[in-house]
Design a binder for these strands. Structure first.
Lengths: 207, 207, 207, 207
DNA sequence: AATGAATGAGGATTCATTCAT
DNA sequence: CATGAATGAATCCTCATTCAT
């Protein structure tokens, strides 16, 4: 019978992750040391290692929760057309790209790229890819089902293409800066391209 | 009067870089140690430090040469229309993306992302960005001058957009694999999108 | 709440310093390596670096404590005339010079001379100079105040002169050996010279 | 049959030493590297190692020549009283002390102190000590023989005492600076003290 | 459950000296 | 004689992780 409840345990984890998050964002994944995390969390080495067995473990939990939060927010809360949903989705991505620099995303890229050979990280990469691909695919599929979209191209390819673009714009935002790369303009352009792919015959709707 | 000629010196450098390249590709930038490079080059620590003052120095020389090689290959060797040149360029990029996994590109991403806070690396990022942006911009500009292209969108935004996409497709190729993401299909799609942006009024040429 | 008390911490420091001291004395400052200190202290690298961040840090703490010990011993514990105090002081110096060879003093000279260009060490030199000069100046000043001393020469110059001599005799003791340079005789001579400078009119007291 | 004459050999040595001297003065003995010496001499490693087998060898030759030069200059070139010679000698020492900072003396101290355990350096220390002691002893002896000096103290002790003082004042000049320690005043004081020791009955001569 | 002192392998870098040319 | 490229042992220092308390 554990002396502390599951809730307390969760509270500690969340506490550690909060500290870890700020350390990772500030220093990057590689440069962040357990010492930093321990110090910022106001705990001891033992105290942290009791909940996480190493730096990677901490980071993965952080990522997992990030994903969960994202998924939660993603559910459309009001009825809308498939295109509106798609638009909203891209809008969301634009916002995320814009805010990426100060967030965990650069760390995640770093983590995944540095560890691209590691089996565990590879599976995380795949999982993440599948998740992004899947959610976009669902959006398009929805439009197809409704008859809104009549894509002139293979849907699979189109979605891959979209994923590539979003990854790229994330990377560019992080490395070069959102302003510098005309983030807003790029998304506008993307939107119009997507419309002409998904709804090639559709009358131009006012944006 | 130097004991070894500039050519021999260059041969040694090239020898070291060859070893370093394979180490970097195999282990990644962070995980590679000078010890690895020294061992694989069949030289001594001193022998390597005689030519390069640290791991970063080795890597940067490797990158620099990579860039130079790329630039050399880029010069179009026969007269062609702007669109043909553009097509060729994208074809080249596709080939490079396909070959990226086994090459130095993943390391470069790693190097740049891990060091995104470092001033020197930031300037390398900018330089690289400018180079890629510049060469694409030139291609489009050429088409404009010739009257081949009548882009319906801002050229600057379009080029930024293209850069983002290429970065993204590189990243995806590296992380998820060219086959998995339907690399060829993506480039085909990209090509057709670019055509409709650059030559919105043009008759559809059979691809 | 620290796991080990300040006292234990101090005990570890003192333990490391004891080891370091013997290494420094045996090998000299330059020749001593952290590896030596680590080995002799029976600890690990990390264990030593936990308390001191490098060789110099260890050495400076060693020096600092040496100075403190010296200062403690210096307080005259019984009432005496200024001349008696002066005599005692010189006696103390003689003893220290005699014991210098087997102590830390040679290392300190080494440290200061080798690093004579380094700003930090320069300030240590000055500090040390001021301390020695100051304590001697105080002794003479005391005699002046009491009317015991009527020096025929500038007090400042005399004290500088004394410092030089003491430094020299230290150096000679270390390098050539106390016996060889007739340390005792030199101090006797110095004492009589000082008396005739400080109390030129005084009746000769039998030594 | 050597291909180069002894003279040429000597010229090369002198050339190397000139470079070495400036390196040693600039960086200090420990900090100077063979690479520095090789570079400044405009020669190659092999070229230097052909004449000197290591850094110490270079330095010792430098010292030896320094001593020889000093000895040459020391011969009094005109007849004078023993006291005048003594005075001149001290004057010479004052000048040397004043110029010590920019010369080889700091290096020599460094070399001797750092290597105080090394048998070869110890013998150099002794040799140097004997030389200094000997030349001073000769001066005093000369005064005794002429009947000029009637020292009230043991001549041996007095000379040791003088050597200590000179060593000390050298050290202080190097470390603290000639101005700071009132070099001139110290020598004046020393002179008057010496006079009263060597010629206790003599009438005070106006300085 | 929590602490935090201690571990020690591992990585980067230097430099006196050698030796093939 | 002269060169200078090459050697590699030696040094410093960090940091993820453990474990006695």
């Amino acid at each position: 019978m554990p002396k502390i409840t599951q809730q307390q345990k969760e509270a500690v984890r969340s506490d550690i992750l909060k500290a870890a998050r700020s350390v990772f964002i500030e220093k990057g994944y590689e440069a962040a040391s357990m010492k930093d995390i321990v110090a910022r969390s106001g705990r001891s080495f033992g105290g942290v290692y009791l909940y996480y067995s190493n730096k990677e473990d901490v980071f993965l939990d952080l990522l997992r929760r990030q994903f969960e939060d994202m998924a939660e927010n993603f559910a459309p809360d009001k009825p809308m057309s498939a295109w509106e949903a798609f638009e909203r989705f891209l809008g969301e991505q634009e916002k995320r790209a814009r805010e990426a620099v100060g967030g965990l995303a650069p760390c995640m890229f770093e983590y995944l790229i540095v560890g691209r050979r590691d089996a565990n990280r590879r599976s995380l990469i795949e999982e993440r890819h599948r998740a992004v691909y899947g959610s976009m695919f669902a959006l398009v599929q929805d439009g197809l089902r409704r008859g809104e979209f009549q894509p002139s191209k293979s849907v699979e390819t189109f979605v891959h293409w979209l994923v590539s673009f979003l990854d790229g714009i994330f990377l560019e935002s992080i490395m070069t800066g959102a302003e510098r790369i005309e983030l807003a303009g790029q998304f506008e352009l993307l939107l119009s391209v997507c419309r002409s792919i998904l709804m090639p015959l559709g009358k131009e709707e006012s944006k």
